[in-house]
Amino acid sequence: MNDMRILERDVETNAIKIAAKGVQVFYGDTHAIKDVDVDIQDKTVTAFIGPSGCGKSTFLRCINRMNDTIDVARVQGDIRIDGEDIYDRKVDPVQLRAKVGMVFQKPNPFPKSIYDNVAYGPRIHGLARNKSELDDIVERALRNAAIWNEVKDRLNAPGTGLSGGQQQRLCIARAVATEPEVLLMDEPCSALDPIATAQVEELIDELRQNYSVVIVTHSMQQAARVSQKTAFFHLGSLVEYGETGQIFTNPEDPRTESYITGRIG
């Protein structure tokens, strides 16, 4: 609890990075997200929790417009990053996603070498002028993802040959290599064993210094461990949003309490 109080102080100083207002998402005829308003702060870890199918992942995918890749999905409402409407017609999702990186539930390294996995983003966005710059970017990203020491001797080995936890950290390295400002993580530890989970959680905490991190998790313990802010979703609506400590110790909404005490979900 002591820790958490310190974190709370941090939170107060941070600016708002993502501002969502009246967000609705439809999958065909299904109303998946109902009128969600949320402000996500910079340099903060924000956790989205809730029972499965509550819409937390769907909302996360609105923030970097990954829902665009699904034909039947329709997004309404207003999401702003640094005050810019990301659903504005002038916004190119490609540029947006360079700014808002994403890490997925299952580690999904490309069937390429470790180096090429990390260099993929910088290459397509043209972030490096030459080979040595690219080498630097790759090394920095791998160091940031706390996996450099494990892979520095085999950068040309295939990324798919790593263990699950290493793969997920490689994917995080891949995401931070494009120098995003926001990092979205969709249940990044659900496919990992406890030791790997601990490593990734530690990493998430470090990442907070440079990024605004939004993490979807089905594990309340994880949310409590890594986040400063928590949002609870239920049946497509945002039920409660606030300081993590408060949500877990003194929720305002009875639904939140039921979930946290294990009665729903």
Partner: peptide, 23 residues
């Protein structure tokens, strides 16, 4: 790495090192 972002006031013009998303 950190040069990419600097804190900004909410709802004010972007301060990202990468320029506006609208352009």
């Amino acid at each position: 790495m950190t040069d990419a972002t600097t804190p900004s006031a909410p709802g004010i013009t972007p301060v990202s090192g990468k320029g506006s998303l609208l352009v």
